[in-house]
């Protein structure tokens, strides 16, 4: 991994924080934020690798990844809002066990 230097190391804490968030949080919005943090780590890594190797394709793909993860994130936030309106809760446990509609 040393070929990318400091930029790559900067993405590792982001990845760890994001993955911890996905595993440990139950609130939909917090899960979404954790997923977006992993997404940010990914884009940073693609950008760093592209800069280190002088290959623009990595930057282009980083942008596309940003768009794809962003769209899915926006959809999930929209659903979380609807979910909150319906069940008065954003806890994912409601997804599994079912909740009472308001």
């Amino acid at each position: 991994m040393s070929e990318l230097g400091g930029a790559l190391w900067a993405t590792i804490p982001l990845l760890v924080v994001g993955l911890y968030g996905i595993a440990a949080r139950r609130n939909l919005v917090r899960i979404m934020l954790a997923l977006e943090i992993v997404g940010a780590a990914t884009v940073t890594m693609l950008g760093a690798a592209a800069a280190a190797k002088w290959q623009a394709s990595g930057e282009v793909l980083g942008l596309l990844a940003l768009v794809a993860v962003g769209i899915e994130g926006a959809l999930l936030i929209a659903l979380a809002t609807l979910f909150n309106e319906m069940y008065g809760d954003m806890d994912v446990i409601v997804l599994k066990e079912g909740g009472e509609e308001k």
């Binding site: 990914t42 693609l46 793909l61």
Partner: peptide
Amino acid sequence: SVFAAVLLFSGLAFYFA
């Protein structure tokens, strides 16, 4: 789906690097 997307792009980033 978002988790799969994030894994896919992370994988792609590592692969590219």
